[in-house]
Nucleic acid binder design. Sequence first.
DNA 1: ATCATAAATGCAACAGGGTTGCAAATATTA
DNA 2: TAATATTTGCAACCCTGTTGCATTTATGAT
Lengths: 145, 145
Amino acid sequence: MKTAREQCEASNTLKNAGLSQTSHRKRILHILIHADTPLSVSDILRQLDQERKMNKVTVYRILSSFKSEGIIREIPTDHGVNRYEMACQHNPVHPHVYCRICRTMTCMPPITLSQVWDLFAAPSDFRIDNINVSITGLCRTCQRK
Amino acid sequence: MKTAREQCEASNTLKNAGLSQTSHRKRILHILIHADTPLSVSDILRQLDQERKMNKVTVYRILSSFKSEGIIREIPTDHGVNRYEMACQHNPVHPHVYCRICRTMTCMPPITLSQVWDLFAAPSDFRIDNINVSITGLCRTCQRK
DNA sequence: ATCATAAATGCAACAGGGTTGCAAATATTA
DNA sequence: TAATATTTGCAACCCTGTTGCATTTATGAT
Ligand SMILES: [Mn+2]
Ligand SMILES: [Mn+2]
Ligand SMILES: [Zn+2]
Ligand SMILES: [Zn+2]
């Protein structure tokens, strides 16, 4: 019997999703698991390239497969740059605050799915894949400028 | 004394925002006021071009000024294409459902700002400009394919 | 109205995120 | 090991959105 934490590790995550265990996928997953804020593709490429270059097309395709399998969440921003975070048990759906100047994105405490459901009352014939709550504005630092 | 409806008309909106009354701005505002769903720049250009062409840079700049003045809201999507809707009295903040296949965006019933505030508990030192709730998934039609 | 000044628009060129086709490399299975 | 399917890299591309600059249009004072 595995602990919950173990099940969120890279190789288990890939196994549970039915994805083959390539080194590329594990490297990207490792970065996402250890991130404390949602990452853009540029962020991920920058981290990868410190160790060994990876083609950006590969990163996009891997993120796309992770998204299809529900391993990660995609969070759009006002600036047209998507960000990605783990969608595992330890990271339930939650809102984000996003500074439109420095483009810092910060995770907020989670809300329960039932709260979201009650509040937003999505139409019953719409199949929900993803609920994104994004609060854009100015962080404390950027308010001073 | 003007009625509330009159205050949301194009020329009044421009006057209240302190923007000069150019024909370009009025044409775009007219399109947004009569839209029943948030529009992309392509949507707006397509409608404009049926009558008389307008340069896309002009459209972007006008939307940008409208956004700065709080006349319109900008709604990002998973596909990196922003959409725009009026932010007048008759159109309070509300969530949207967005189909990731046909890319249809539909407005949902409004929630009160205090509900959002209580639920998301944004940090007190963050100055909120915009709260966006976006529900992505499949519309009824696209579920059948 | 006339002129001076500021603001708005069009055009071209560009930036950056993201995608597609195809060939080469790697993993999987028999 | 050999055959097959999947993954990766590369180049070229598409699309949204931006920037610089010249031209046009609006504004405001004389
Ligand atoms: Mn988060
Ligand atoms: Mn709406
Ligand atoms: Zn900031
Ligand atoms: Zn659809």
